[in-house]
């Protein structure tokens, strides 16, 4: 039992299988929303699943000049980094499956793994488009990573803890930390677009310009794993923001104390899912409303207009805490 439960958590729920299934659903929601924004009908609900199966059932090609090991392992690193971080994010209760002091740092760094894996995969595919895409992945990382980190530190300082579970528990009184860190929240949302490499920050992929950048040589199952990695990153990133700023599974007016334990878990899960879908709604709205910008515009804009607000918000929180604490 001692071994089976954690294995179940990592591989089935809320880990690998659940994340993939929910990710496919959310990616359908995303595509359907964009279709609606563009006055289209949009794909049927099983579309992402069909795409996945079709990709798995396609021939696998490794280009002759690519580094075979790197080419094969890079998508796995991306997927594993994303799925591993779900264990440390609170999902149905204000406490995650595993909490330790500093897990916020671990999760933020696990979530940068897809970017590095994308760089490695692109660089070692030995393809001109992929090489350009790979350098763009890293350049873009310079732009969004620091603001994202700073934005996550805002609630951490406000709650006085580096553990996501502690931060979520601090919001159980109904005072969501978005009230203390509104700028950080906005910064985190925009930086999340950069992290997920979606429009308007889809510069590394830029379908109309460098084909799909680092993924250009990937086919079949390896491409499928890339897609899975990015759609799970959407969920995990949204869940992280929900946990830090929006109280995780907490919702006002729901009598959590009066419910039995199993009902709290289900209600908490549903509440969190709704929050994740709201964040995805924002992402699709951005995708439908905007066009791609250039890489150096992105980096400069992000450092300036995301970095400084995040710093200011952090400074204000630190100052207020010092005044109150003294």
């Amino acid at each position: 039992m001692q071994v089976v439960t954690p294995l179940f958590h990592v591989l089935v729920f809320p880990g690998f299988l659940f994340l993939v299934a929910f990710g496919l659903f959310v990616s359908w929601v995303d595509r359907k929303l964009i279709a609606k924004f563009q006055n289209r009908v949009g794909p049927p609900i099983l579309q992402p699943f069909a795409d996945l199966i079709k990709l798995l059932a396609k021939e696998d090609i490794i280009p002759e000049h690519a580094d075979r090991a790197m080419f094969a392992v890079a998508p796995l690193i991306a997927l594993a980094g994303v799925v591993a971080s779900i264990i440390y994010i609170p999902l149905w209760a204000p406490v995650a499956l595993k909490a330790f002091s500093g897990d916020l740092i671990v999760v933020v760094y696990l979530l940068t793994l897809p970017a590095f894996a994308l760089f490695l995969g692109g660089w070692y595919s030995a393809n001109p488009f992929a090489t350009i895409g790979a350098t763009r992945v890293l350049s873009q990382l310079f732009g969004y990573e620091v603001p994202f980190f700073l934005a996550c530190l805002g609630p951490a300082i406000a709650a006085g803890s580096w553990s996501i579970s502690e931060i979520t528990r601090a919001q159980d009184n109904g005072l969501w930390l978005i009230s203390a860190a509104p700028l950080s929240f906005a910064v985190a949302m925009i930086a999340l677009i950069g992290k997920l490499e979606r429009v308007p920050f889809d510069i590394p992929h830029a379908k109309t310009e460098i084909v799909t950048g680092p993924e250009v040589e990937y086919t079949g199952r390896r491409l499928a794993v890339w897609k899975l990695a990015f759609l799970s990153e959407t969920i995990v990133g949204a869940a992280l923001i929900a946990a830090l700023f929006l109280g995780g599974p907490h919702m006002w007016g729901l009598p959590y104390q009066a419910m039995p334990a199993w009902l709290t878990a289900i209600v908490g899960m549903v509440v969190l899912a709704v929050k994740i879908l709201l964040i995805v709604f924002f992402l699709s709205l951005a995708q439908a409303a905007m066009a791609r910008i250039r890489i150096e515009q992105m980096v400069q804009w992000c450092l300036l207009w995301l970095g400084i607000p995040a710093l200011i918000n952090m400074g204000v929180i630190a100052f207020v805490i010092r005044q109150v604490g003294a």
Partner: peptide
Amino acid sequence: MPRFDLERFGVLLEGSPRH
């Protein structure tokens, strides 16, 4: 484009022939 909307049949435009 939206008028015919082939995405309802699952058609996506891909740049790379590998995909």
